[in-house]
Design a protein around this nucleic acid. Structure first.
Length: 134
DNA sequence: CTTCTTTGACCGGAT
DNA sequence: TATCCGGTCAAAGAA
Protein backbone atom coordinates (compact mmCIF):
# COMPACT_ATOMS: atom_id res chain seq x y z
CA UNK A 1 0.00 0.00 0.00
CA UNK A 2 1.06 3.51 -0.21
CA UNK A 3 1.86 3.54 3.46
CA UNK A 4 5.39 2.74 4.38
CA UNK A 5 5.19 -0.47 6.35
CA UNK A 6 7.62 -2.85 4.88
CA UNK A 7 7.50 -6.56 5.27
CA UNK A 8 6.44 -9.47 7.35
CA UNK A 9 9.23 -11.92 6.57
CA UNK A 10 8.29 -14.59 8.97
CA UNK A 11 5.50 -14.28 11.40
CA UNK A 12 5.62 -18.01 11.37
CA UNK A 13 7.27 -20.00 14.05
CA UNK A 14 5.00 -18.70 16.79
CA UNK A 15 4.43 -21.56 19.18
CA UNK A 16 0.73 -21.62 19.98
CA UNK A 17 0.03 -20.95 23.60
CA UNK A 18 -2.68 -18.63 24.66
CA UNK A 19 -5.55 -18.54 27.06
CA UNK A 20 -9.00 -18.18 25.66
CA UNK A 21 -11.42 -17.11 28.34
CA UNK A 22 -15.02 -16.24 27.95
CA UNK A 23 -16.09 -13.69 30.45
CA UNK A 24 -17.22 -10.13 30.87
CA UNK A 25 -20.23 -8.75 29.18
CA UNK A 26 -20.23 -7.11 25.84
CA UNK A 27 -21.38 -3.54 26.13
CA UNK A 28 -22.78 -2.30 22.88
CA UNK A 29 -22.95 1.44 22.44
CA UNK A 30 -25.46 2.93 20.10
CA UNK A 31 -24.28 4.06 16.70
CA UNK A 32 -22.09 7.10 16.98
CA UNK A 33 -22.45 9.87 14.47
CA UNK A 34 -19.53 11.97 13.39
CA UNK A 35 -19.72 15.72 13.62
CA UNK A 36 -22.12 17.48 11.31
CA UNK A 37 -19.27 19.50 9.80
CA UNK A 38 -17.87 16.45 8.12
CA UNK A 39 -20.33 13.78 7.28
CA UNK A 40 -17.72 11.63 5.60
CA UNK A 41 -15.13 11.33 8.29
CA UNK A 42 -15.24 8.29 10.47
CA UNK A 43 -14.16 9.18 13.95
CA UNK A 44 -14.05 7.17 17.09
CA UNK A 45 -15.85 8.60 20.08
CA UNK A 46 -13.30 9.36 22.75
CA UNK A 47 -14.10 7.48 25.94
CA UNK A 48 -11.41 9.03 28.05
CA UNK A 49 -9.30 5.90 27.89
CA UNK A 50 -6.40 5.29 25.59
CA UNK A 51 -6.64 2.38 23.18
CA UNK A 52 -4.19 0.66 20.94
CA UNK A 53 -5.33 -0.85 17.68
CA UNK A 54 -4.17 -4.42 17.27
CA UNK A 55 -6.09 -5.60 14.25
CA UNK A 56 -8.64 -4.83 11.59
CA UNK A 57 -10.62 -7.25 9.46
CA UNK A 58 -13.62 -7.43 7.22
CA UNK A 59 -16.37 -9.68 8.59
CA UNK A 60 -18.16 -11.49 5.82
CA UNK A 61 -21.11 -12.45 7.97
CA UNK A 62 -22.21 -8.87 8.30
CA UNK A 63 -20.19 -7.36 5.47
CA UNK A 64 -18.65 -4.81 7.80
CA UNK A 65 -15.18 -3.78 8.83
CA UNK A 66 -14.28 -4.54 12.39
CA UNK A 67 -11.42 -2.85 14.22
CA UNK A 68 -9.98 -4.32 17.38
CA UNK A 69 -8.67 -2.07 20.16
CA UNK A 70 -7.14 -2.92 23.51
CA UNK A 71 -6.36 -0.89 26.60
CA UNK A 72 -2.87 0.59 26.72
CA UNK A 73 -2.02 -1.62 29.65
CA UNK A 74 -1.43 -5.22 28.81
CA UNK A 75 -2.89 -6.47 32.05
CA UNK A 76 -5.98 -4.40 31.69
CA UNK A 77 -8.86 -6.59 30.60
CA UNK A 78 -10.54 -3.74 28.79
CA UNK A 79 -11.15 -4.27 25.10
CA UNK A 80 -13.00 -2.30 22.47
CA UNK A 81 -14.31 -3.28 19.04
CA UNK A 82 -15.52 -0.90 16.38
CA UNK A 83 -17.62 -2.01 13.46
CA UNK A 84 -18.61 0.06 10.43
CA UNK A 85 -19.71 -0.34 6.80
CA UNK A 86 -16.96 -0.25 4.21
CA UNK A 87 -19.28 1.68 1.92
CA UNK A 88 -21.13 3.74 4.45
CA UNK A 89 -18.79 6.32 5.92
CA UNK A 90 -21.84 8.35 6.78
CA UNK A 91 -20.84 7.91 10.38
CA UNK A 92 -22.66 4.83 11.57
CA UNK A 93 -20.27 3.10 13.92
CA UNK A 94 -21.02 0.31 16.32
CA UNK A 95 -18.78 0.39 19.35
CA UNK A 96 -18.59 -2.69 21.52
CA UNK A 97 -16.90 -2.44 24.92
CA UNK A 98 -15.70 -5.57 26.63
CA UNK A 99 -14.14 -6.08 30.05
CA UNK A 100 -13.24 -3.51 32.65
CA UNK A 101 -10.14 -1.45 33.39
CA UNK A 102 -8.00 -2.55 36.27
CA UNK A 103 -5.62 0.27 36.70
CA UNK A 104 -7.67 3.17 37.84
CA UNK A 105 -10.66 5.11 36.76
CA UNK A 106 -11.19 6.98 33.53
CA UNK A 107 -10.16 10.60 33.37
CA UNK A 108 -13.75 11.71 33.03
CA UNK A 109 -12.56 14.84 31.26
CA UNK A 110 -11.69 14.72 27.57
CA UNK A 111 -8.81 12.62 26.44
CA UNK A 112 -5.82 12.02 28.66
CA UNK A 113 -3.93 14.85 27.03
CA UNK A 114 -5.88 16.19 24.11
CA UNK A 115 -6.17 19.93 24.01
CA UNK A 116 -9.32 19.56 21.99
CA UNK A 117 -8.79 16.89 19.40
CA UNK A 118 -10.62 14.05 21.00
CA UNK A 119 -10.61 11.61 18.13
CA UNK A 120 -7.33 10.07 17.29
CA UNK A 121 -8.26 7.31 14.90
CA UNK A 122 -9.57 7.88 11.41
CA UNK A 123 -10.92 4.48 10.53
CA UNK A 124 -12.40 5.30 7.15
CA UNK A 125 -9.27 7.05 6.00
CA UNK A 126 -7.41 3.78 5.82
CA UNK A 127 -9.97 2.25 3.53
CA UNK A 128 -11.07 5.24 1.53
CA UNK A 129 -7.83 7.04 1.00
CA UNK A 130 -6.93 9.32 3.85
CA UNK A 131 -3.76 11.33 3.63
CA UNK A 132 -1.88 9.56 6.36
CA UNK A 133 1.77 10.60 6.60
CA UNK A 134 3.28 8.07 8.85
C1' DC B 1 15.02 5.30 24.04
C1' DT B 2 10.35 4.73 23.84
C1' DT B 3 6.08 4.55 21.61
C1' DC B 4 2.55 3.90 17.91
C1' DT B 5 0.44 2.01 13.94
C1' DT B 6 -0.17 -1.39 9.98
C1' DT B 7 -0.31 -5.93 7.60
C1' DG B 8 0.03 -10.84 7.27
C1' DA B 9 -0.23 -15.16 9.21
C1' DC B 10 -1.54 -18.24 12.66
C1' DC B 11 -4.84 -20.42 16.27
C1' DG B 12 -8.77 -22.65 18.06
C1' DG B 13 -13.35 -23.81 17.72
C1' DA B 14 -17.17 -24.95 15.08
C1' DT B 15 -19.52 -27.23 11.26
C1' DT C 1 -11.52 -35.49 8.05
C1' DA C 2 -11.21 -31.08 6.18
C1' DT C 3 -12.51 -26.47 5.91
C1' DC C 4 -13.98 -21.82 7.39
C1' DC C 5 -14.32 -17.89 10.40
C1' DG C 6 -13.20 -14.81 13.76
C1' DG C 7 -9.82 -13.27 16.79
C1' DT C 8 -5.12 -12.44 18.25
C1' DC C 9 -0.10 -11.91 17.95
C1' DA C 10 4.34 -10.54 16.07
C1' DA C 11 7.47 -7.74 13.48
C1' DA C 12 8.92 -3.60 11.13
C1' DG C 13 9.48 1.33 10.40
C1' DA C 14 8.78 5.99 11.84
C1' DA C 15 8.35 10.02 14.98
Amino acid sequence: MASSSSSQPNAIGRAGDRNQEKEDEAVVAAAAVAEAGNGSQLVMPEDGYEWKKYGQKFIKNIQKIRSYFRCRHRLCGAKKKVEWHPSDPSGALRVVYEGAHQHGSPPSSSAAAAGGASNKYELGAQYFGGARPQ
